[in-house]
Design a protein around this nucleic acid. Structure first.
Length: 312
DNA sequence: ATGATTTGACCATG
DNA sequence: CATGGTCAAATCAT
């Protein structure tokens, strides 16, 4: 049976089970390819293994944010089954009748509205602090909107953030795209020098990011299903990991520290295996790359000039 | 000078 | 009393 056919069949399963089956099938296939010992194939499969792992993480994130109130419960709404210690029962919801919209996002993002941070608090039994924001026009325009953002515990790659909104933001409508040039002073702030260290600025528009996630996911899987891999021609080195990584290095360097600002160590795939750093760069490019005119862009489709067959 | 963030203190709730 | 949410003075960046 042709590899592409098997993958297509697995991918067409639909739903979570189909996705898992697809990934399993793909992983198995790529591990077989790696065993062939061909340099190009090895480097490429290493890349794709990491990319597929990341793609599924992104998928889960999109699914979680698409229907916050849908059943079954979203991953961030239920404690992990293998949790060693059961957390205390959640506090009862406030009786203020304020609707809350909960999102799970793969990265902090700029939703286009202007927020002012008014607090940060360490929440019990969590590893990351929760930041509190309110509408910048809280008083002038009586904008009641608030949101709080907290990085989710766990070794998600990329890190997932829980964002909870209250009210509708009545301030300035979202602008698109939004991007802030990183200055030396802002870098100092990001690194925590002075002022006790500020929180990372949210840079990209959420909708654009989700669209980009979809594009990258589709193109990634398409490349795999087509059995071809393309890479940047700027680097004349052989098709090793480093040269593939050069493609991803198109992500603006200034933005990378933001995306990688969590305390997590290197990227790890679902099986707990360490992935190459280039996968991390890929993540940065995915979330920070496409906007602005002052940096190289990553358009979600590898702007390659050289391709080679992955699967014969 | 102005505006945003940090951070410890305080408040409300269960 | 424990905890999450908010306040506001101090601090920092522009």
């Amino acid at each position: 049976m042709q590899a592409q056919s098997r993958l297509a069949a697995a991918a067409s399963g639909g739903g979570g089970t189909g996705a898992v089956a697809f990934r399993h099938e793909l992983t198995t296939l790529l591990r077989v390819l790696r065993g062939q010992g061909q340099g190009q194939v090895e480097a490429t499969t290493t890349f794709i293994l990491g990319e597929v792992s990341r793609a599924f993480t992104v998928c889960l994130s999109i699914m979680a944010s698409a229907s916050p109130s849908a059943s079954p419960p979203q991953p961030d709404e239920t404690p992990p089954a293998d949790s060693a210690v059961s957390p205390p029962p959640p506090r009862a919801a406030r009786e203020d009748n304020v609707p809350r919209k909960r999102l799970l996002t793969a990265s902090p993002y700029d939703d286009g509205y202007q927020w002012r941070k008014y607090g940060q608090k360490k929440i019990n039994n969590t590893n990351f602090p929760r930041s509190y924001y309110r509408c910048s026009y809280h008083r002038e325009r009586r904008c009641p909107a608030q949101k709080h953002v907290q990085q989710r515990d766990g070794d998600d790659v990329p890190a997932l953030h829980v964002v909870v909104y209250t009210h509708e933001h009545t301030g300035r409508p979202p602008s698109f795209p939004t991007r802030r040039r990183t200055t030396p002073s802002s870098l100092r702030r990001l690194r925590g020098v002075g002022g006790g260290g500020l929180q990372p600025q949210f840079v990209d528009h959420r909708a654009a990011m989700e669209e980009r996630e979809r594009q990258v996911l589709v193109s990634s899987l398409a490349r795999v299903l087509q059995g071809r891999q393309c890479y940047d021609d700027d680097d004349d080195d052989d098709t090793d990991v480093a040269s593939l990584g050069a493609v991803h290095a198109r992500a603006p360097a200034a933005a990378a520290p933001v995306a990688a600002s969590s305390s997590s160590s290197g990227p790890v795939d679902a099986a707990g295996e360490e992935l190459d750093v280039m996968d991390y760069d890929m993540t940065d490019a995915l979330f920070w790359g496409p906007f602005g005119t002052d940096s190289n862009s990553y358009d979600g489709n590898l702007t390659s000039t050289r391709c080679f067959d992955l699967i014969n």
